[in-house]
Design a protein around this nucleic acid. Structure first.
Lengths: 121, 121
DNA sequence: TCAAAAATTAGAATCAATCTAAAAGCATTA
DNA sequence: TAATGCTTTTAGATTGATTCTAATTTTTGA
């Protein structure tokens, strides 16, 4: 656990939303101006592989990262693109039931209009 | 419907698996050597937007395309990466139930070990 | 303390995908 | 048929995200 990795992890832990590698890099640079983009990617990849954080693919733009914790799925607003988390505790079992026991994981992204965009009309 | 679009659509309709834009381009070039990559992307995008074909995001590599038809979800093998289709007719309604009525769509990719890889050990 | 291993850095390179501007194809009308 | 305008295609440059490379620094551990 290097200083750099610690910083990146802290940034994700304190973020109030999903961050791209670029955003993590920007925020990291504020605290540690010498940090390199490659370091950010190295650590995001390493921590993703280790299951400490999660990577979220976003159609048509850069992947986002978020702190670990209970597994969950995502909602993505059709209008503003913002991601939200949602927990569907029944899904894993229901999928196992339908598909067979050999599921090692899954990713679900639901498209919707978020409350803010809906209000705005 | 240009000759190029027709060709691309035919390639997808006759493919026995999901194809990347690159693969479509390669196959298209066999029949029409003058075709340009941009044309392949233009048409794949246009037909995806029109709902005639589907785009499938694949973690860590290029998007794949497949012919249209009934909506379905995907299985991806952890080992060989191959995609398979799966239809889960109950899912859409079940998600509506859990999330609310305002779902405009979703994408689900399930991770597993495909029969071939499992056999191989 | 020294050597080996691992991580970091800066910048180049790669890969998928998009953009640009010029040329070609196609309709329609004159 | 010729002229017009609209759409598509083409080739190649460009972008944007991510990875790679090689040199340097840091960490580890004998």
């Amino acid at each position: 656990m290097t200083k750099q990795r610690e910083l990146i992890l802290q940034i994700l832990n304190h973020a109030d939303r999903h961050l791209t590698a670029d955003e993590v890099f920007f925020l990291a640079k504020l605290k540690m101006p010498s940090i390199a983009m490659a370091t950010v990617y190295n650590n995001l990849n390493a921590m993703t592989d280790a299951g400490i954080i999660h990577r979220v693919h976003v159609d048509g733009s850069a992947d986002c990262f978020e702190k670990g914790g209970e597994t969950h799925d995502h909602l993505r607003c059709d209008i503003c693109g913002k991601l939200a988390n949602i927990t569907l505790p029944w899904l894993q079992d229901r999928l196992r039931q339908s598909v067979g026991k050999e599921i090692s994981g899954y990713e679900l992204t639901i498209h919707y209009i978020c409350p803010e965009c809906k209000k705005r009309g």
